[in-house]
Design a protein around this nucleic acid. Structure first.
Lengths: 125, 125, 125, 125
DNA sequence: GTGGTCTAGACCACA
DNA sequence: GTGGTCTAGACCACG
């Protein structure tokens, strides 16, 4: 089951974002070995070069490191991982406020809208 | 003071989004005349072709209409405008939950994080 | 006359270094348009993709910026350019001292050796 | 305390260079016995295969020789050792001039910069 | 088998 | 025509 990609932003960037999210979520944890470029390319259904580029980007951001012949690993610095999760969350919330304020909503309105979101006391979905 | 654009998505799309937001926010209101393509291009500092394309897209979405010789106007159908604002807000909040859930946060955690956001203007930051 | 490359380090890195040096030397100056990826690829005799990668690296370092359809330009921030030249010189001299000290030479010996280098009063070479 | 390696050039080459430098500096002197491949691999924290390759290369260059059962030794020909030191120094200084000339510095400027380098131990830095 | 590089060639959106 | 992306396929050094 290859991953689905939107068209409008480059595949390798979407890969970066999704893998980054998975790392932040702990799907891959500190010092754990990532699937090889080729494996990951097969899994996601993209060209190995594209995956290579995504991995290179993540490595450059310090989230991954590679050992010459044994593979790529999630960084061992737990602080980076913790910060990553917080940073991603921060960015998303920040973005929300930015966008909704541009629409003329006050901070309180925004918080209220979010508070009501999917709030279904009886829980049937 | 030309607008600033990120270089990662096409300028015309960024224009569409920002103008759309301004319309939703009421910066340009129903049946109000928009600046001409050329004026708007000068204001924002983009190529007139690019602005033309943005306007065309907004027109196609039904947010603008053009009268032969007198220019482009914001749609007069207030419902569209109201829906627009709600839709944009909906999309942003929806996006937030999607992304933060991928990070492993529960709906309650998300609502809490947002509730605390910028909560105390004179307090802890 | 295509450029010559050593084998031992990737071509794109050698490209990065050489173009960077040219920028630092003023061969390409602030806000000047660089040759297009394709032109530069022909000049140097490498694949356009390889040149693209080199340019991307230089852009990421802040030495170049690209305008969507009009080409790539040397950064306009003169400070960066001045710093670049100093930094490259600094790195080379620093490297020299590091290496020669590892060989057991004192700073004075090193300075002397350099002072005598190519010092040919009568100038025939 | 394993050695540190850059990841941009093969480890075995970095090993060759560093061991060669140590020999040139006299850390290992003429006819002195080198640590075994295994010992050296443990010390530096690399794979024995990698260290083996480095030693083989040094042997091929004539800096080491091996006696069947008693191990590897630094060459006894003092001339080679002396030449080595000079050659390494020569290469580094030569490199410096090449690079700085590409930056547009004259030989005099280069000599001056080096002369000023770390000149005042207790002074301005 | 691993990461990494490079080529060749095609395609696209953009201004 | 420009930068940019992507694929396909090959090759290499490394450990």
């Amino acid at each position: 089951m290859p991953w689905k990609f939107e068209n409008g932003s480059p595949i390798y960037k979407q890969l970066v974002h999704r893998i980054k999210t998975m790392i932040a979520a702990g799907t891959y944890s500190a010092d754990e070995k990532m699937p090889s470029v080729r494996e990951m390319a097969v899994i996601t259904g993209v060209n190995p070069n594209t995956m290579q580029r995504a991995f290179a980007e993540l490595e450059q951001e310090g989230l991954l490191y590679s050992r010459r012949t044994s593979g790529r690993f999630v960084t061992g610095e737990e602080k980076i991982l913790k910060d990553l999760r917080e940073r991603l969350a921060y960015e998303e919330i920040s973005r929300l406020f930015d966008e909704l304020e541009k629409l003329g909503m006050s901070d309180d309105e925004i918080r209220q809208s979010v508070a009501k979101w999917r709030e279904e006391p009886d829980g049937n979905d």
